[in-house]
Design a protein around this nucleic acid. Structure first.
Length: 116
DNA sequence: ATTCTGACAGCAA
DNA sequence: TTTGCTGCCAGAA
C-alpha cells in the first residue's frame, strides 16, 4: 500500500503474472480462465502475450502451468526447447500425452473460483 | 500517432 | 465431426 500504485492499478501484464504465480503446483489453468478472472474473457490472447514477456520479470512465472482451453501446450515452443514445458509439468505430476494435458479437466484450476 | 502482432476462444461452414 | 475465420485487448515498432 505504501507503493505509489495500488495493486489493482498495475498493468494488465502484472495482473497476469500475479495470477499465474498463484497457480498451485500440480494444477493447470487456461488463458481464458485467467482473462476471465481479470474481467475480460475475450482478452485471452493478451494473457499469452503477457506471458511472452514473463521472462522480463525478476520473479519466476510458472507459465508452463498455463495452457489453452483444449489442454494443449500451445506455448511449449516458447520455453527454449519444445520439451521444456512438458518436462516441467510432468515434474509436477501432470501427465502429458501428445502435447495435451491428460485429465485436463481434473487438473484445471480456475482463479475465478479458487481466488474469488 | 498509427499499424501490427500475439503462448486464445468462440462461432460458422 | 473437423477445419477455418473473426473478434478482442494491450503492448511494441
Amino acid at each position: 500500500m505504501t507503493r505509489g500504485k495500488k495493486s489493482n492499478n498495475e498493468s494488465f501484464f502484472e495482473r497476469v503474472y500475479d495470477v499465474t504465480k498463484l497457480i498451485p503446483t500440480g494444477r493447470v489453468t487456461s488463458y481464458g480462465a485467467i482473462a476471465n478472472y481479470l474481467g475480460s474473457r475475450q482478452s485471452a490472447r493478451m494473457v499469452g502475450w503477457a506471458l511472452n514477456s514473463c521472462h522480463t520479470r525478476p520473479d519466476f512465472i510458472p507459465a508452463h502451468r498455463v495452457v489453452n482451453r483444449t489442454g494443449l501446450l500451445s506455448g511449449k515452443h516458447h520455453f527454449g526447447n519444445s520439451t521444456t514445458m512438458q518436462q516441467l509439468l510432468e515434474n509436477e505430476g501432470i501427465v502429458i500425452e501428445d502435447d495435451i494435458v491428460v485429465d485436463f479437466k481434473d487438473k484445471f484450476w480456475d482463479p475465478a473460483k479458487e481466488l474469488r
